[in-house]
Amino acid sequence: MKKWSLLTLVGADQQAIVAAVTRVLAEADCELGETSMMRMGGSFAMMLRVRHENQDLATLLKEVCGQLSLHLHIDDDVDTASSAMEPDVNITVYGADRSGIVAEVTGILATAGLNIIDLETAMAGTADKPIYIMTIEGQALQGVDALTEAAKMISDGVELNIIPIQTLRA
C-alpha cells in the first residue's frame, strides 16, 4: 500500500540541488506529485509530495542532505484527496515596504471569504525606497464583490487589484 508524504528541504542555494535530491527519490521508486521549489533569499526551498512504499525517507535522504547541507522535514500520510482546487480570483498587491502588509491584507480579505490557494511575495525597489509585491490566487467564497468591498479597509499606500478568474473549459 503506497502512501503519500510531504517533504520540505531547505538549504543554502547552490547549483543542481533539485537534480541531486530527485535522483535519490527516483532510484528508490518514490513518485513525485505536486512540488514547489524556489530560491528564497540565499536559500533554496523545496516542497515535494512523494508517493512511496512506506519507506524510511529520512534514512534514504540522509546522505544527499548531508552533502548539500539541507534541512529535511517529513510529514507523513498527507491527505490524498483530490487537491485540484480551482482559483476564481487573482489578487495583486503592492506598496512601499513596511512590516505588516501581508498580515493586514490577508486578514481583511479572510473576513470577506478569501481562501488562499497560492500566495507569493517579493521585495523590489531600491534600498532606500523598497517596495513589497504580493500575488494571490484564491477562492472568493463570498464572491468577488465582498472582497472588493472589504479591500476598502486596507491602509492607504497599499495598491490592490482584484481580478475575477473565469476559467475556460474547452
Binding site: 485540484a84 473565469q166 476559467t167 473549459r169 474547452a170
Partner: peptide, 13 residues
C-alpha cells in the same frame, strides 16, 4: 492572461 482547462487534459487548469 487567462486560466484554461481542456477536456483532453483532465484535472488541470
Amino acid at each position: 492572461k487567462g486560466r484554461e482547462g481542456c477536456l483532453s487534459v483532465p484535472d488541470f487548469t
